[in-house]
Computed example of a mutant assay.
Amino acid sequence: MTEARTLKIKTSLARQMAQPGGRTVAEVERRANERLDRHRDDVMITVAGTITELELVASAAAPGSEPQVYKLASSLLDMAGFFDTGPLYDAGYSLCEVADRMAVSGAWNWPSVQVHVRAMRMILTGGCQADATSDALLMGLRSVAAKART
């Protein structure tokens, strides 16, 4: 019986990767973040527009517009999640959670939505900074979310 032999084949990719040089992971991450930051202002304008849409939906409180709340809030999270928006992201997430729970239970409460939207506007106006004001707003939103769970 012949003995099996193992051959090591070096592909062109393996040869290229074995060569010295290239970029470090830290350098690639830094460059990616720089490129992403170029879009921050445009994204924050879009986030502000989404909050305006939420304000219109919440103030109208029209029957049948409830699904719009979750759709707009999740869209806000999709955009804000790429940047450090701290308390704004947390407030948007809380609104998604509240809207989802109210939709499932069938007990919709527009004032809960309005409170979240006003808080998001205040946080955005404050520059999305984590401070005593945003902490107090988030604490209030947590109590609204806790009430939606019951």
Rank of each mutant, 00 (worst) to 15 (best):
R30G: 05
A119L: 06
V98Q: 10
T150W: 12
A73H: 13
E3Y: 11
Q114T: 15
V43Y: 07
T125N: 02
R121L: 01
E29W: 11
L36I: 07
V113H: 11
M139D: 15
L56F: 07
A146E: 11
D41W: 04
A107T: 12
T6N: 06
A73T: 12
A103W: 15
L138G: 07
Q16M: 13
A132S: 12
R23A: 13
L72T: 04
D131C: 00
L36S: 02
A132V: 04
A48Y: 04
I123L: 00
L76G: 10
Y93S: 15
P111T: 02
A119M: 04
K147G: 06
S105D: 11
G22N: 06
A130D: 08
L72S: 07
P111E: 06
I51H: 03
A80L: 04
Q68I: 01
T52W: 06
F82M: 11
S75M: 07
T52D: 15
H39S: 10
K8C: 03
R35S: 05
R38N: 00
S143E: 13
K71Q: 13
R35V: 03
T125C: 02
M17N: 12
E34S: 00
A107P: 01
L36T: 04
M120N: 06
E29Y: 12
V43T: 15
L72M: 05
E55Y: 03
R118C: 05
S105V: 06
I45R: 15
A18V: 06
V98R: 10
N33C: 00
D41H: 09
R15N: 10
D100L: 12
V69A: 02
V98K: 10
I51V: 12
L36Q: 08
G106M: 02
R23W: 15
I9E: 03
Y93C: 09
R40W: 15
V69M: 02
T133G: 00
D100Q: 14
L95S: 10
V113D: 12
G22Q: 10
L7W: 14
Y70P: 06
R121Y: 01
E66P: 02
L7S: 06
G64R: 05
E97K: 14
P87Q: 05
A103D: 12
V28G: 08
K10P: 06
T6P: 01
C96A: 04
V115C: 04
I9K: 01
Y93K: 15
T52G: 07
F83M: 07
M122G: 03
M17V: 09
V43A: 15
N109P: 00
R101V: 11
A145D: 08
S134D: 00
D100M: 13
L141G: 09
A99F: 04
T150I: 11
Q114P: 03
R101P: 03
R5S: 11
A148L: 04
A130N: 10
A136T: 10
I123K: 00
